[in-house]
Amino acid sequence: MNSGSASLWPTFLQAIVETLQMVSVTLLVGGFAGLVIGILLYTTRAGNLLANRPVFTALNVLVNTVRPIPFIIFITAIQPLTVEVTGTSYGTEAVIFPMAIMATFGTSRIVEQNLVALDPGVIEAARAMGAGPLRIILTVIIPEALGPLVLGYTFLFVAITDMSAMAGAVAGGGLGDFALQYGYQRFNPVVTWFTLGVIVVIVQLGQVLGNWLARRVMRR
């Protein structure tokens, strides 16, 4: 940041805000939508609470199709849809849209994998007490898997921060964009490294918070 430019600081702080904005909105929207789809994947699986082969197969194929697409290509591929929804094809908002979609599918798989480990006995017990599917999802499935789910979302947070760094592709702003523009393209590795350090700190903070929360939830 010392390359003759104290003027870089406001831009840098702005980049931090943009990164936090992208990450938090994506985590919220993608995290919730992913939770819903993940629970549907788990419950519609054969032999489970809402066993439904067509729904399961459709969701499964959808998730498997979207997830392996490299994010940088995904951004450009759904650009027409992004313009339709957000009204713009570049900037922070324009990158949040593809991020939220990608995060939704990533989360759904993480959620499903954590739920599969659940003891089916507790669900059977709730059924035997006369509880309906929605109640079982809200009061048995989610609370019983909360510890692993928190760790799953912590993993997701790191993945989303990683994704946000590619926002530079559509002039999305954020720390990744900043590092490319002011570090790499201006041959100033110190700026790149410094930015990298800040990203690492954000990721670490998120991980520590997630671990602490999961420990509290699991009480062990």
Partner: peptide, 16 residues
């Protein structure tokens, strides 16, 4: 089912 109790070999208590 509300009128029928059920107990299990593995207890199946809610750990949360």
């Amino acid at each position: 089912r509300v009128g029928i109790g059920f107990i299990f070999q593995q207890f199946n208590l809610l750990n949360s």
